[in-house]
């Protein structure tokens, strides 16, 4: 029993860790932070291994929340630095993360972010997303549609700013 569980955990790790860590690296600044976030997501998964129905979705949603926390921490740090030192002395923070994915996680409310993450990044069909989130399939489709529209609007705005 324990051996089979260990084997399943090992296989899941081998299959999902590189992709999850790669996805995290697009969102955060460095490899080390990406590893930390992916590791923490796996730790939380295995700490409640028996109660998680869909580990893939759990990992992505947990990682997205951790990334959001990381950004908040960075923002707090930046504000504190700005308060301590003069504003001119601080160079603007270079955005190394992929702005498009960052936009995805940052601009969407959790209700819309979770279906997007599960469907597009965790590669789950709408039926599974519906089971996992406890929403009807039609609701999930509507959420995905709303999320795409929201992203489109955000993207259009950010493109207008850069021109």
């Amino acid at each position: 029993m324990k051996r089979s569980r260990d084997k399943a955990a090992s296989e899941l790790f081998a299959a999902l860790y590189p992709r999850l860590a790669g996805w995290c690296r697009r969102l955060v600044d460095d490899d080390e932070t990406a590893h930390e976030i992916a590791s923490e997501a796996f730790t939380r998964l295995w700490a409640r291994w028996t109660s998680v129905q869909e580990p893939r979705g759990f990992l992505y949603v947990t990682a997205a929340n951790l990334v959001r926390d990381h950004w908040r921490g960075l923002e707090r740090e930046r504000k504190a630095m700005r308060r301590v030192t003069s504003e001119a002395a601080v160079s603007p923070h270079t955005e190394q993360a992929d702005p498009s994915v960052r936009l995805l996680v940052q601009s969407l409310p959790e209700r819309l972010r979770v279906p997007i993450l599960l469907h597009y990044y965790a590669d789950m069909p709408i039926r599974e997303v519906s089971v996992l989130t406890g929403r009807k399939e039609g609701t999930v489709k509507a959420d995905l549609h709303a999320a795409r529209e929201l992203l489109r609007a955000h993207l259009r705005r950010s493109l207008d700013h850069t021109r």
């Binding site: 790790f13 860590a21 790669g22 995290c24 690296r25 697009r26 990044y121 795409r148 992203l151 489109r152």
Partner: peptide, 16 residues
């Protein structure tokens, strides 16, 4: 559609 860029599959892999 620019949205397709955002929702493109993750191709980056980062080994443990």
């Amino acid at each position: 559609d620019p949205i397709a860029v955002i929702l493109r599959p993750t191709s980056d892999l980062l080994g443990p």
